[in-house]
Amino acid sequence: MRIVHVSDCYPPRTGGIESQVGDLAARQAAAGNEVHVFTATLGEHGERGGAVALERGVHVHRMGARMPFDLPVNLRDGRLFRQAFAQVRPDVVHVHAGVVSPFAHDGVRAATAAGLPTVVTWHCMLDGTVPALRLLSRTSRFEVGAVALSAVSTAAADRVREAFDGPVHVMPNGIDLDAWAPHEVGLPARSTHGDEDPGPLRLVATMRLAPRKRAVPLVSLVGDAVRRLPPDRVRLSLIGAGPVRPRVERAIADRGLQEVVELRGRLTRDEVHAAYAHADVFLAPAELEAFGIAALEARTAGLAVVARRGTGIAEFVEDGVDGLLVADDAEMTEAVVHLVRDRRLLDGIRAHNRAEPPRFGWPQVLAAANREYSRARALRGL
């Protein structure tokens, strides 16, 4: 099959959508498909304007323009899309959309105008944008009835369904379950039996330090837990980089948490996996988490996950089984305190997570993608 992925963002940019699209495309290419990616992200050396390179077995078309702040935008998308679709002649076009994805939306219009089977997967929560998207679907050339609509989780799909009239399926993200399996598989969590002190509860969070991920509120809620506990009962390792790091550093200093919170910066996947071997609980404070790849990786590595209820993380975290789901920051603080005081609960959750991998491995995700491609082709009578 000849597959074209359309995404505003793609490596060398880092982030959830970029990593997911890159891994999906590479897996499909390894399975014998001819895979192309059309992206507005410039190459590592500034490649743009339609330059094509083979990366991980994938033909990557750099269709962006040089813009301030390296924004993934190209004002000539229409012409480049028409030329590229005519040259590649794909069997299916898979568009990856976020809340603000001008390149992806142009790709949808160009693909449907060319009569190509098209899948659109939303990687975001559309809270606050549903009315605008309903207007877009009614007033633009966005042919909803000719597009297979999907989202990365049930929670995200519910919002897409509100915005567009038509069925919306779940097209989940995936990870390499073997690569993220717990280190030292089979060993129990730290003993909490008898009078032995299990030491501080080891918290970890992996995120881009951006407002939407809520790193500053995370520091605050951990600080609230620290105030309610005896000294030296909590440690937080915060992995990631981004524009709000100075605000995070100020929040740590203002709350006197220098001995509690460690800022690790950006780490490689292998380094993150190694860090999880020394952690107990993964905290996910984001309110608009469409899926939660970092949380899934931590869950696969055997950590208990504490996350917001109503997000995509509920796809793989059952409350009281894989972790704890909470309504707000106050409840997340309460969950941290509870896990410090009830290490048997923590041990039970961690033992379950180490023994039972989640279901989002790449074979399942590739099969889900193929079902969406078949649905898109059927909508075109193919």
Rank of each mutant, 00 (worst) to 15 (best):
V108A: 13
A355V: 03
D70W: 12
F291W: 15
I313D: 04
R308I: 02
H183P: 07
A307P: 03
P117K: 11
R255C: 09
A210Q: 14
A241I: 06
V281L: 03
R299H: 02
M207Q: 14
V336F: 08
P230F: 01
A351H: 10
R48Y: 01
H105V: 04
A84I: 15
P363W: 01
H123Q: 14
G199S: 01
E249K: 10
F69E: 13
F69D: 13
H36V: 02
P102L: 04
E162S: 13
L126A: 08
E143V: 05
R2H: 07
T206K: 08
R208T: 04
R190F: 09
A367L: 03
P200A: 12
R82M: 01
A284V: 01
R62Y: 13
A111L: 09
W122Y: 13
V337S: 14
G312L: 13
H273A: 07
G310L: 05
V317S: 08
D23L: 15
R66G: 09
V21H: 03
T268W: 14
G46F: 14
H94D: 11
E259Y: 07
D178H: 13
R27M: 12
L346E: 05
D8F: 09
V317M: 10
H105W: 10
A376T: 06
G78L: 02
I252A: 11
D270K: 12
T121L: 06
M125Y: 02
H61T: 04
N74W: 01
D23Q: 12
F103G: 02
V326G: 03
A335P: 08
E318L: 00
V152G: 09
H45W: 06
V160T: 00
V100A: 07
I252E: 11
A351N: 00
S137W: 09
E47F: 08
Q258S: 09
S191W: 12
V95E: 05
A279L: 10
R377N: 03
D127I: 09
D23W: 05
R350Q: 15
P231N: 06
C9V: 14
A157N: 11
V160Q: 05
R341M: 12
A327N: 13
R250T: 15
V244F: 02
R266C: 06
R212G: 12
R202K: 15
V95S: 10
A86F: 00
R13A: 14
I3H: 04
D197I: 12
V248Y: 03
